[in-house]
Design a protein around this nucleic acid. Sequence first.
DNA 1: ACAACATTTATGGTATATCATGGGATTTTG
DNA 2: CAAAATCCCATGATATACCATAAATGTTGT
Lengths: 147, 147
Amino acid sequence: MDTINNKVDGKGRVSLPSDYRAIVKELSSEIVCYRSLSLPCIEGCLEETLDKLASDIETSTDFFSETQDNLTNLIFGDAKRFAFDSTGRITLTEKLLKHAQITNEAVFVGKGRKFQIWNPENWEKEEARIRADALKNRPSLRTKEID
Amino acid sequence: MDTINNKVDGKGRVSLPSDYRAIVKELSSEIVCYRSLSLPCIEGCLEETLDKLASDIETSTDFFSETQDNLTNLIFGDAKRFAFDSTGRITLTEKLLKHAQITNEAVFVGKGRKFQIWNPENWEKEEARIRADALKNRPSLRTKEID
DNA sequence: ACAACATTTATGGTATATCATGGGATTTTG
DNA sequence: CAAAATCCCATGATATACCATAAATGTTGT
């Protein structure tokens, strides 16, 4: 949960927000990150979340499962484990930082079982887009009691 | 549940009304708050309410769905856990206070499974608006009240 | 009914622990 | 051996826990 802005130093080091860390630490000591398929951001989650995704798709009878299978392969090929050090930081790779256009600052955005890491300006725009979109679809949101 | 007016100090601390606290404490020791999507107020609920919503979304769309991505970003990106201290207070964030235009005082308004936190003046206007709206949409009520 | 007392609640202030972040030391790798 | 990646320590900032007072509410006894 939550959106948090942290600094990224010259080595690509960035603190995983403490709230995130607390949750991760209950289950593991590392996370998995990969380039988002559709957005200019980094996605992160626990390894077990990716594993679950893979098995879900394997057993799926969905007509489009072949497409999803390809997408899954893309993610697995890209994904890399990141352990956090004693002060709670991970060091992101050039490939990931470049994809998300991150230099000095990174915004962590909670997504429940996953999270995203954004360039601050890009996230600002994306958030505005999402909120506008959600307002347009407000009737369906209402039934789900978001607002 | 009635509406309760409490002070907000310089740190953003505010007492959760005792009635609210009693209900929350039966189930948890913390609440979740987020900016209302359409109104200038803060909304609060139990975490399980958001979790339920998230699982609803997960089962209704697939892992790669853009709609799901947007919704989960909107919900979990904005929401934050707030534990209350030994005296029953939570400390609201700048983002939330700014959205609701709250400075010194905050009004708690019960909404069943949720509640809202308002700037007192804004709530006064909103309540008037709601009452006027109710009358307009129920002419039959009006005639009965006149008689 | 009223007074005296007790308990819960709200609020202000201060101390403490935690977190984010910079710099440097140490290890690994090619 | 050089370059890079990883680990460890120091510090300032921030948030959290703790204590102390004040107000409101509730309770008891006469």
